[in-house]
Write a protein that binds this DNA or RNA. Structure first.
Lengths: 124, 124
DNA sequence: CTGGATCCCTAAGGATACTG
DNA sequence: CAGTATCCTTAGGGATCCAG
């Protein structure tokens, strides 16, 4: 039994989150995290590349979200010590494991978001 | 061609969101929305049932999130005019369409959240 | 039982300027 | 180029009490 070794090594994260879903939402739920991950799905990107892909995100927020994604182990940050500086972000294996979810979320919006907005308008 | 009829009826939601993913995140990204949807996956639930399933959500927040989900057309709210009051929430077809995403998010956390928390601890 | 109304507070996010 | 450092605003969320 998994609980025979004193502390339960599996699913101990449920101490922090009362439900698995909460955890995933927290990990990719930041306003820009999902989008960043999405853009990294097709390969590594430099800081300014990401900023160009999302012009309405501020440098500050981009940096913050990248740092959090890095701290969670979802992305790698590779610094090239040159002048001018060059930093490349890429998905870790853990980040890669989110691919199906990201793609499904993209697809869902494409197929259903119009309806959602119609519904909102109707009872507005 | 889809653009031949003057205004593009498809994907007009991209005026509001610069990326499909942002849209989906907004729809299920509320702190409790995903969890509520999850609990509705296996059938309709009453207000207090949901509250019992998530004791740490306040009545106010539960009400608010339910209202938003309803406004987006993801859930139905059926009021039984009796005393005491009885209200049942259930998924609409649109809400049902989120099932694969919800389940995938659950599964992802189960398989990967431990690693995420380890990563966080390590560079904390 | 299912909320609504009110008050409050923190953390998420944004604007702007500066820097190695 | 790839960030920090400040300052500021707001919306998300919580606590509590009231009500049909």
């Amino acid at each position: 039994m998994s609980s025979s070794n004193g502390n339960n090594t599996n699913y101990s994260f449920l101490n922090k989150y009362s439900c698995s879903l909460e955890a995933t939402v927290e990990v990719i739920g930041g306003k820009w995290k999902g989008v960043i991950l999405y853009h990294l799905l097709d390969g590594k990107k430099r800081f300014n590349e990401l900023k160009r892909l999302k012009p309405n995100i501020t440098q500050r927020m981009l940096t913050l979200q990248l740092r959090e994604l890095e701290a969670d182990g979802l992305i790698n940050r590779k610094v090239y010590r040159e002048v001018p500086p060059k930093v490349e972000y890429s998905l870790t294996e853990l980040g890669e494991s989110l691919r199906p979810i990201i793609l499904l979320m993209m697809e869902w919006a494409t197929n259903n978001m119009e309806k959602v907005l119609e519904n909102r308008d109707n009872d507005a």
